[in-house]
């Protein structure tokens, strides 16, 4: 049985309950108090000590606003008064998104890990075994989503475990449990896929035609990753949520890279033999 998350960003209210619940349950240290000025986001990014991160996206749509905007005119009639054809939608919308490890079907971090610390557990989640990890740091640049970091005080790499411990006891992950709007859903991947499609269809029917599922092989998960077990319903371009549009499996190029190295070795060997001949 494969379990995963479906994070429906359209109903997220940016309460950060998931972030806090995750920190509490997993006993993750605080990250200090930097105030970023980036909307309400002072967490900034996922890391070894932050396994859920709520992004606050203001003005998610592409904008072409220039010059002084007459706010009164804006309120009265946007499209005619604004130069460059900006949309009211662009000023008014505010998007939230609770980001988490994507639990890739073909996980680059898992393939990179030289100790076998990163495994797929019985729930088909990508899990870093903390008793094996020796902090080599190779999973960090391997991850196409920037999920993993090494915790300096500890030396090991950490990321979302999809609450392996809670799942073993038949509980849902702490973030999903804490989510007050059911923006974060937990369950079997197949079931979540069905729900995601249904929800997107519903949104389309209501006129929100930009809604789509991120994490299916079609969108997010091409290039060998084969989709994610953490899926998201997004309303905007993936980049707006700091997600790559088409993440790729770096190890896909292993055969090409090896073949090229062998060819180079043959050429260099011949060159040395030529120089030392006779």
């Amino acid at each position: 049985m494969a379990t995963g998350f479906l994070t429906d960003t359209t109903v997220c209210i940016g309460c950060k309950a998931c972030e806090v619940a995750c920190k509490q349950w997993n006993q993750l240290p605080a990250d200090g108090y930097e105030l970023t000025g980036d909307s309400y986001d002072n967490t900034k990014t996922l890391s070894g000590t932050t396994w859920r991160h709520v992004a606050f996206i203001e003005n998610p749509k592409k904008k072409r606003l220039t010059g002084d905007v007459d706010l009164v005119a804006l309120a009265e009639d946007v499209r005619e008064q604004l130069p460059g054809g900006a949309e009211l939608d662009a000023l008014g919308r505010w998007a939230f998104m609770s980001d988490v490890c994507k639990h890739c079907v073909e996980a680059p971090c898992q393939q990179a890990c030289p100790t076998g610390s990163i495994i797929r557990n019985e729930f088909d989640n990508v899990f870093i075994q903390p008793d094996i990890c020796n902090g080599c740091g190779y999973c960090i640049p391997a991850c196409p989503y920037g999920v993993i970091t090494r915790v300096p005080e500890d030396g090991r790499a950490f990321k979302c475990t999809l609450c392996y411990d809670r799942q073993k006891d038949g509980l849902e992950p702490a973030c999903a449990k804490a989510c007050p709007t059911e923006s974060i859903m937990f369950g079997e991947v197949e079931e979540l896929e069905r729900r995601a499609e249904q929800r997107v269809q519903e949104l389309h029917d209501r006129g929100y035609t930009s809604a789509f599922v991120y994490g299916t092989p079609e969108v997010g998960g091409t290039g060998g990753i084969g989709g994610n077990h953490s899926k998201f319903i997004l309303m905007d371009e993936p980049e707006t949520y700091n997600l790559p549009r088409h993440p790729f499996l770096p190890q896909e190029k292993l055969n090409q890279a090896s073949a090229a190295s062998i060819a180079a070795a043959a050429v260099l060997g011949a060159v040395v033999a030529w120089a030392f001949r006779g």
Partner: peptide
């Protein structure tokens, strides 16, 4: 237009 407050979407090696 693109991206999220210029925060890198991936992590650099350490």
């Amino acid at each position: 237009d693109k991206g999220y407050y210029d925060i890198p979407p991936i992590k650099e090696h350490t």
